[in-house]
Design a protein around this nucleic acid. Structure first.
Lengths: 194, 194
DNA sequence: TTTTTTGTTGATTGACGAGTCAATAAACTT
DNA sequence: AAGTTTATTGACTCGTCAATCAACAAAAAA
C-alpha cells in the first residue's frame, strides 16, 4: 500500500541506518541489505533511492557533518564574547554526541574514504574551513595577526585530541580535551587568557 | 623447486605487499589474492603462513610501527640536548617516509581497525605510550612539572597535524607541521624556547 | 632408502553480496 | 477508464573471495 511522498522519509531512514550500521561494524564493511533491513525496507529500495553503496556513504557523512554544524551553531548562539565563542566551539566539538559509537565510526571511516573519494575529501575540506573560520572570528580580537596560525594549530589539536579520546581505553572524556585545548590557547594568549 | 628457510622471506614479502596494497586501495578492502600476487606467490601460501587476512593486517601494522620506531630512535641518536630530542622526534614524525601513500593508508586504516580489533588497539596504545615517553625525556628538563600535560597535548597535536597534512589537497608539508608543533612548545616554554 | 618435514599451488567449495528486473499495487492525471 | 507516475519487493544474475584440500616437489632425518 504505497503512500506517495515517501522518498525523503525513506532516504532519511536509510541515512540513519547507514550511520548506525557503520558504527556497529566499525568500518564501511556493511552490506546494503543490512542497512536496508535496519531501515525497514528491501535492499532493492535502497538501490532505487541512492543508486549504490557509495552514494549512501556520502549522504551519511553529509548528515554527520550537518549535525555537527548545527551543534556548533547552537552553541555559538549564546556566546557573547570572543572567548565565549572559542569555548562554545570546543564544547560542541567534544560533546557527548560526537563520542557516540556511530559518530566515531563515521568520522574514522570518513578519513579513510577521504583518501580516495573526491567527494569525501571535498566534504572534509568544507568541515575544516568552517571550523577554521569559526575559530578565527573568536581569535582575531584576542590574537590579532597571530589568529590565523593559532586557528590552524587549534584545529589540528582538536582533531588530534578527538582521535585520542576516541581510541583510548575507557570512556572518552570531553572535558579533559577541552581543558587541553584551552591550555594551548592560554599559553599563546598570556595577556588575556580565556 | 622449494628451498628451505623460506618462511621468514615469504612472511616479509607478504607484509610488504599488504602495506602496498592497502596504500593502493586506500582501505582494508584488499583481497588475499592481490596481496599474494604482489608478493609473488599463490594465495594459498599466504593463508598457509598467516592463517587469515586479519593476521596479515596486524602484522603489517606492527611493521609500520616498527619502521616508525626505528626512525625515531635513529633521529634521537644525534640529539644531545633536550631541545634537540624534541626536534628529532618531530622531524621523524613528519618525515617523508610517513607521508608515503602506503604509510598513510596503513595509519588511517589502523585507526579504523583499532575500534574493533583489540590487538590493533593494543598496538596503537604502545605507539602512543612510546611517543609520550620519548617526549617526556626531552620535556622534563625544560618544563618540569608541566612536562606531563605538555607531552599529552603535543602528542595529540602531532596526530592532528599529521591527519591534516595527509588529507589536505596537494603535497604534504612536513616542515610546516614541525613549525606548528614547535610554536606550541615555544608558547609554553617562553623562558627557554627551542 | 624410506620417512618426515617444509614449501608450494591449482582447483574447488561454499558463502555472500551488489546491482538488475519484472511484476505488483496504490495513487494521481487526463 | 485508461494511462502515468511513484512505491515496493522477491527472485535472480553475475561476480568475488576467503578458506580448504589434495597433491606434488625437494630437502632433511632416520
Amino acid at each position: 500500500m504505497p503512500k506517495l511522498g515517501m522518498e525523503p522519509i525513506r532516504k532519511a531512514a536509510l541515512v540513519k541506518a547507514t550511520i548506525v550500521e557503520i558504527g556497529r561494524a566499525g568500518s564501511l564493511d556493511v552490506t546494503v541489505s543490512q542497512i536496508a533491513k535496519r531501515a525497514g525496507m528491501s535492499s532493492a529500495l535502497a538501490h532505487h533511492y541512492f543508486g549504490g553503496k557509495e552514494a549512501l556513504f556520502i549522504a551519511a557523512m553529509r548528515h554527520v557533518l550537518s549535525l555537527y554544524g548545527a551543534e556548533v551553531r547552537g552553541a555559538l548562539l549564546g556566546a557573547a564574547t570572543p572567548a565565549a565563542r572559542i569555548t562554545a566551539i570546543l564544547q560542541a566539538s567534544f560533546s557527548a554526541t560526537n563520542f557516540r559509537r556511530e559518530v566515531v565510526g563515521a568520522w574514522l571511516n570518513f578519513y579513510v574514504l577521504a583518501q580516495t573519494a573526491p567527494e569525501a575529501k571535498r566534504l572534509l575540506a568544507i568541515y575544516q574551513r568552517r571550523l577554521r573560520s569559526n575559530l578565527l572570528v573568536g581569535l582575531r580580537p584576542l590574537a590579532g595577526e597571530r589568529a590565523r596560525d593559532l586557528a590552524d594549530g587549534l584545529g589540528a589539536l582538536i582533531d588530534g585530541l578527538y582521535l585520542r579520546e576516541v581510541l583510548k581505553d575507557g570512556a572518552p572524556d570531553g572535558a579533559a580535551a577541552v581543558a587541553c585545548a584551552r591550555a594551548y590557547l592560554n599559553a599563546h594568549l598570556k595577556e588575556c587568557p580565556l
